[in-house]
Amino acid sequence: MLSFLQQPWHWSIAGVLIGLTVPTLLLLGNKYFGISANLRHICAACLPANIPFFQYDWKKEIWNLFFIGGVFVGGFIAAHFLQNPEPIQIAAATKATLEMQGIHEFTGLIPNDLFSFASLGTIRGFIIIVLGGFLVGFGTRYAGGCTSGHAIMGLSDLQIPSLIATICFMIGGFVMTWFGLPFILNL
C-alpha cells in the first residue's frame, strides 16, 4: 500500500480527487473553491492600509486560510512520508530544451539551480522568483481568480468569464514559455 502511494500518481486519479474538491467544499459549508483569494485575505488581515479593496470582513473567509494551511501540511506529509524514491520523469524534449537554457538539476520537483537562495542573488533567479511571484499575485487578483477559482470551479459551473480567464492563463503561459523564458533563463 505504501509503495503504491509513494509512486507518482496518475493524472486521472489526481484529476478526479481535485475535481471532487468542488462538491466537497460546497456540501461541507457552501464554500466556493478558490485559492488565490487567500492572498487577498492576507493583505486585508495584515496591511489593509485604507485601500477599499481590502476593507471587508476577512475573518468570515477564515475557512480558506485553514484550507491553505492544510495544503501546506499536505505538502509536508507527501514530501516526508510518501516521497517517491525515484527522480522525477521529465519528457526528453523538455529536458533537452531546459539543458540548453542552463537548467542542470533534474532530480527534485523543482530545479535547485533556479529555486534556491543562491539563485535568488542572480539576475535570472531574481526575475523568476520575485518578478514571477509578483505577476502571479497581481494577475490572479486582476483576473478575479486563479487555476482553482476560474479553471476548475468556474468551468465546473460553466461560467463564460472563467473560460475567457482560463484561455488567457494558457496564452500567457505559452507566450512566456516560448518567447520569455528562453531569454530569461539564459541571463
Partner: peptide, 18 residues
Amino acid sequence: YGGLIFGFGWAMTGACPG
C-alpha cells in the same frame, strides 16, 4: 489582462497560488 499576466507568472514560477 489579469489572465495573461498570471499566465506569464505561472510559466515562470511553475506554480499557481495553491
